[in-house]
Computed example of a mutant assay.
Amino acid sequence: MNIRVISAIALLCLVWGSLWGLVKHSLLVFPPFLFISTRLILAALTLMVLQLILRKSILPQHGEWKPLIISSLLICFGFYATQTFAMQFVDSGLSAVLVFTMPIFIGVLAHYFLNERLNAQKVLGLFSGSLGLIAILWPQLHHLHMNVSLMGQVVLVFSGFFWAMATVYIKKNFATYDKIKLTIWQLLMGGSAILVGALIFEPIDFKVWLNPLNESMLFYIAVIGTGIAFVLWNWIVSQVDTFIASISIMCVPILSLLFGYLVWHEPLTVNILIGAAFICLGIFISALRMKVPRNRVIYSSNQNR
């Protein structure tokens, strides 16, 4: 990876690491689906202004609408909507850990759709990551009964799965596409659809929305944490292997746990720490590049002659 990609990854990790606690706090203030739809639309409109300043095209061509709609559904409904719903019942740091099982799912999906082979090393990583999930969910699994916390944790894992699907789909269909234009329509179409439902079912309290502190928090989450950050993510995915891209941002849940503990006073239980360690170990194992012994390479090349 070159310095531009490394810098983009570092910036993205810092932004997303600080975001989870703010989103959790926002869900105590705003109705969840009005919040997520406003977040997505505000991010898209900001990027649209940026695209105009850069004097680049905004409207997709006729044949581009179908893949953009599919991408938007995966990101906005599969990832953002499910994540926002589930975070009402789960702490921000734990939410980040569960959503960032995404690289484990990418390991499987990329094997079938991007020809990134799933070898024994990646399988071992997947097994370690699965142990991490069991450790985190163990208090609920040990005395299994349906409650909103367990439901939220399961939904967050599905959110990570949909994010993985979206990432693989973007890599396959938008590798050379304008990343700002891609993000605009991903967020705008899905956000507008969610907004319609939110306006029907959720109340609007203008005092909440016009509060300067709430507005500044929403601005950071929407413009920096969603719009700019997702442009960076889509660009990173286009520059490197999807699995490596997903592995490279795995410090985000660790930062989120730290911010959640220090800023938002969220508990760090032994189960969460053990689970996070196994998940990170699994992802590290999956990403580790094993060196093939030189004599084996020579033997293999001789066999192929």
Rank of each mutant, 00 (worst) to 15 (best):
S246K: 06
P103V: 07
G17K: 04
N302E: 15
F105M: 09
E64H: 09
L114T: 11
T226S: 15
L47S: 02
W185I: 08
A193W: 14
I75H: 13
N119W: 02
G190Q: 02
K24E: 00
K56E: 14
L19I: 06
L118C: 09
S256K: 07
G21F: 00
I244E: 12
Y220V: 11
I194K: 08
T101R: 05
I279G: 02
V252P: 04
A135G: 06
K24Y: 01
V168K: 02
K172M: 01
L98A: 12
P32N: 05
I6G: 03
L34Q: 04
V292Y: 01
D91T: 07
V90K: 03
L187Y: 06
R117S: 13
L109R: 12
L255V: 14
E64W: 07
F284S: 14
A44C: 04
A135S: 14
W163K: 13
S286L: 09
A287S: 14
L74R: 04
S159W: 01
V292G: 00
P32D: 03
F77S: 01
S149T: 14
V237G: 06
L52A: 15
D178C: 08
W20M: 00
A277L: 13
V154T: 11
L59D: 07
G107L: 13
R294Y: 03
I170A: 13
L73W: 04
L59I: 15
T226N: 10
V90E: 02
Q140A: 11
A164R: 13
C280G: 08
V5W: 01
L268H: 08
A81N: 09
S248A: 14
G78A: 10
A135V: 11
G93Q: 10
I200A: 12
M290E: 07
P139L: 09
R305P: 04
W264K: 02
S18I: 06
K122L: 10
F162P: 12
W163T: 07
P253D: 11
G17Q: 06
I228E: 02
V5Y: 07
S18Q: 03
N147C: 05
H142M: 07
W233G: 09
R294C: 00
I279A: 05
N234S: 15
F162H: 06
S18P: 02
L188K: 05
L40P: 08
W163D: 12
I272N: 01
V240H: 06
L137V: 09
N2M: 05
G132R: 05
W163I: 09
W20V: 00
A8M: 13
I279P: 07
G225I: 02
A10P: 08
L11K: 01
W185D: 08
A44G: 03
I70A: 12
P60N: 07
L74Q: 00
C251V: 15
G78Q: 13
D205S: 03
V297N: 05
I224E: 08
H265T: 09
